[in-house]
């Protein structure tokens, strides 16, 4: 009995140490790949995440200070790319994205000052001095940087209307039907 206990304990200890040693000795340096993460980011430095540009956000994600869901323009696609890159699993389908918005210029109020043009990270606003500006829907990321620049408050963020082509079947909800008590 005692022999069995002692021998098994010793065996366990020895194997444990061996595993621990192997983990230290043969550890593959986990390179978070800051450059790689940065390459995944949109690169617009729009500042919606609250960090100083995409590089700052990438560094924060690499240090695990910021969640991978921090980038609104990146959306689920970015989350999934990051999950693949950094090797974590995330239920991307259950994430809810805030309704995407884009900037729009109120033609009545715009005075054509061109201030918004200069800050747009994707050159999504077109216009010339003293001409009414316009937002290219396809290029606007909804970062709202132009919002504060407008002296006449002619820029508004408007939600992108949901169309039949872009509508997504919601995930089936089964709670309550599987006998779960509410």
């Amino acid at each position: 009995m005692i022999v069995a206990i002692v021998s098994l304990t010793l065996l366990g200890l020895a194997l444990g140490f061996a595993l621990g040693f192997a983990a230290k000795r043969f550890a593959v340096a986990q390179d978070a790949g800051l450059a790689a993460i940065e390459a995944l980011m949109p690169g617009t430095n729009c500042g919606q995440c609250g960090y100083a540009g995409c590089a700052g956000a990438a560094a924060a994600i690499a240090r695990a200070e910021a969640p991978p869901t921090i980038c609104p323009p990146g959306g689920k696609a970015l989350v999934e790319a990051l999950a693949k890159r950094l090797g974590f699993s995330v239920d991307v389908a259950s994430l809810t994205e805030p309704d995407p918005k884009i900037a729009s210029v109120d033609e009545e109020i715009c005075i054509g000052c061109c201030r918004c043009l200069k800050v747009c990270p994707t050159d999504a606003i077109i216009g010339a001095p003293k001409q009414i500006h316009n937002v290219l829907r396809e290029a606007c990321t909804g970062c709202a940087q132009c919002l504060d620049r407008c002296p006449t408050e002619a820029i508004k963020m408007t939600p992108i209307p949901l169309t039949l082509q872009h509508w997504v079947w919601p995930k089936p909800v089964l709670n309550g039907t599987l006998g779960v008590m509410s």
Binding site: T44, P73, A77, E80, A124, A139, V168, W169, K171
Partner: peptide, 20 residues
């Protein structure tokens, strides 16, 4: 639908990167 939507955002992200 979800995969199609994700492909769309990916395309948009690519476009955004190009624009930036």
């Amino acid at each position: 639908n979800e995969l199609a939507a994700r492909a769309r955002t990916e395309l948009r992200l690519e476009a955004t990167k190009r624009l930036a």
